[in-house]
C-alpha cells in the first residue's frame, strides 16, 4: 500500500509543524536550564571560579543519571511524571517533558566542555580586572566560548530532532509518528521515504546554518 503524492503533503506538512514546535519548545527549556547547569558544572571544578567538590559531585551524578538511560526507556519510565506535569501522556506537550529531561543534561555537558576550552588565564584576568563572578561568567567564559557554544547548540538541536522522532512512536505526533503509523505499521513506502528525506534535509539545514554562524563568529 502506498499513499498518493497529492495526499502526502497534507500528512507531511502538519507533521513537520509539530516536530518544529516540539524541538523549538524543548530547546528553549534546554538552553535556559542546561546553560546554568553547565556553567555550575564547570566552575565548581578545582581551579575554577567557585570550586566546590560536593556540589560538583552531586550535580555531575544527577547529570549522568539523566544521560544514562536510552531515550525510549526514559520516556516510558517517567510517564506518571509526564502526566503530572503536562496533564496528558500523548501529543506534543507530553513529549516536551521527557525530551527536556533528556536534553538538559545533554546540553549541560556540551556547555561544560565548551567552557573548559576557554583559557583559565582569561577567567583569571577577568577576576583580576575586578569583575564579579557573574560578570566573568558572562563577559569572559560564555563570550569567549561563543563559537563552541553555537556548535553545541547545533548538536543539541539535531539531538532533539532525533528525540522528537522517537517520541513520535509513543504518540507524540510529528514526523516520527507519521513514520511509525504510516510507514512502519501500514508499510507505506511513500510516507516512509518522505519522512526520511524530510529528516535528512532538516538535519543538513540545521548543521549548515550552525557551521555558517560558527565561522562568522571566529576571529
Amino acid at each position: 500500500m502506498s499513499t498518493d503524492l497529492d495526499k502526502l503533503w497534507p500528512l507531511l506538512f502538519p507533521a513537520i509543524g509539530q516536530t518544529l514546535q516540539m524541538v523549538a519548545a524543548v530547546m528553549v527549556i534546554v538552553v535556559a536550564v542546561g546553560t546554568p547547569v553547565g556553567v555550575v558544572l564547570h566552575n565548581s571544578s578545582p581551579g575554577a571560579l567557585f570550586p566546590h567538590r560536593a556540589l560538583r559531585a552531586t550535580l555531575s551524578w544527577v547529570v549522568n543519571l539523566g544521560r544514562s538511560l536510552p531515550f525510549l526507556i526514559l520516556m516510558a519510565a517517567i510517564i506518571p511524571f509526564t502526566r503530572y506535569v503536562a496533564g496528558t501522556t500523548i501529543g506534543v506537550s507530553a513529549a516536551i517533558v521527557p525530551m527536556s529531561l533528556a536534553g538538559i543534561p545533554y546540553f549541560a555537558r556540551l556547555v561544560e566542555t565548551a567552557l573548559r576550552e576557554v583559557d583559565r588565564e582569561a577567567t583569571e584576568a577577568g577576576r583580576a580586572a575586578g569583575g564579579s563572578r557573574l560578570q566573568v561568567i558572562v563577559s569572559v567564559q560564555l563570550a569567549e566560548a561563543l563559537p563552541a557554544l553555537v556548535g553545541s547548540l547545533t548538536i543539541a538541536i539535531v539531538g532533539m530532532l532525533e528525540f522528537s522522532a522517537i517520541a513520535g512512536t509513543i504518540g507524540a505526533g510529528g514526523i516520527g509518528y507519521l513514520a511509525i503509523s504510516y510507514g512502519y505499521e501500514r508499510f507505506d513506502t511513500t510516507v516512509m521515504t518522505a519522512t526520511i528525506v524530510t529528516l535528512i534535509v532538516m538535519v543538513q539545514v540545521i548543521q549548515f546554518t550552525g557551521d555558517r554562524i560558527v565561522r562568522r563568529l571566529a576571529h
Binding site: E121, A122, A125
Partner: peptide, 23 residues
Amino acid sequence: FQSANLLRRRTAAQNVAMPLRYL
C-alpha cells in the same frame, strides 16, 4: 599576565575597556 591573557574575541580596545565595564 604572562602571554597577556587577552580575550581572543575582543578587539584591543574592548580588552582594555574590560575593567571599566566591570566598574
